[in-house]
């Protein structure tokens, strides 16, 4: 019998925990053991989650593959599917398809510095890279993480990032935090304590705080689409080659496998499907594909 790629596999919600007013942390376990074992993903790939009677939506995985059969996701409410996920309790079943897309070229990045730049919910896929690179610390040189938030309340994985702030360079990663609301009290407190690592402003302002060695750095950006342009420019100004700046895109994806066409971008000479050619592209791609950023 031919496999039907559109038929979701069942997975159980083992954790559905509120992180902020808008976001939940969701941990899924594929029910079928064989399916779970075969479910190998690259960091930066995404899955399609189905809720019966509601629909399907794409989500990027936010953890590295360490605990077998478990998939971690960061879900922001607002859409039909996301709202439905948030009201499901632990033990409920959802449908899963995937993993889809290309993911980040972790092998290729070995031996280089990593600069991870996250804005808002874009922190989800970057967290998986951070986990992986810290776990495989010897494979990479300096690891720097820029995280831009609006207010302290909207900060995701707060405990993890707070401990990176507190740990300083000892944590294995230089973590910098920027916040947009200059009056946010908790952020001001953080800034008072870690003045060299925390500042108010947009995430691209963090470039003022640190040196980038352009020759051997891979930069990975993930955040709202407006961020790519600004951060891309900052990096280019600092001579990071555009082909070593990676971005992860968000688009409407009904199928995840290059059929439904909703995620098509580009011009006559560069039509791309974000779902199967991406979602990870280089800044070079972005400069040469119209409508990408």
């Amino acid at each position: 019998m031919m496999e039907n790629v559109f038929l979701p596999k069942l997975a159980k919600i083992v954790k559905n925990e509120k992180m902020t007013a808008m976001e939940h942390f969701l941990r899924l376990q594929l029910l079928d053991k064989k399916t779970a074992e075969e479910f190998q993903y690259n960091l930066g790939q995404f899955i399609e989650i189905s809720i019966m009677g509601v629909g399907e939506a794409p989500f990027s995985i936010c953890s590295m593959q360490n605990q077998k059969y478990l998939l971690d996701l960061c879900i922001r409410s607002g859409g039909r599917v996301t709202s439905a996920i948030l009201r499901l309790g632990e033990g409920s079943l959802v449908g899963v398809r995937g993993p889809y897309g290309n993911g980040f070229p972790l092998k290729e990045m070995e031996g280089s510095n990593l600069l991870l730049v996250a804005g808002g919910l874009g922190v989800a896929p970057l967290r998986s890279i951070l986990q992986y690179s810290l776990k495989n610390r010897a494979k990479y040189r300096d690891i720097t993480f820029f995280y831009g938030i609006r207010t302290y309340d909207t900060m995701l994985f707060r405990d993890e990032f707070n401990s990176l702030l507190a740990g300083g360079d000892e944590s294995g990663c230089k973590f910098y935090l920027s916040y947009e609301d200059p009056k946010d009290e908790q952020c001001l407190l953080l800034e008072a304590e870690y003045s060299d690592r925390c500042m108010s402003g947009v995430v691209s302002k963090l470039f003022e705080r640190t040196e980038i060695s352009p020759k051997d750095t891979y930069a990975i950006i993930c955040g709202p689409s407006i961020m790519y342009k600004f951060v891309g420019q900052e990096l280019t100004k600092r001579d990071v080659p555009p082909e070593r700046i990676l971005i992860s895109l968000e688009r409407r994806m009904r199928c995840g496998i290059g059929k439904c066409g909703n995620c098509i971008i580009g011009d006559g000479s560069s039509i791309r499907y974000v779902c199967k050619d991406g979602p990870v592209f280089t800044y070079w791609d972005a400069l040469h594909t119209k409508g990408m950023i």
Binding site: G53, G55, C255, C260
Partner: peptide, 18 residues
């Protein structure tokens, strides 16, 4: 050659199947 499609879930009256 246009091949884009959209997807919807329709629920039945029992609110469970569809």
């Amino acid at each position: 050659t246009c091949r884009c499609y959209d997807v919807v879930d329709n629920v039945n009256m029992d609110l469970k199947s569809g």
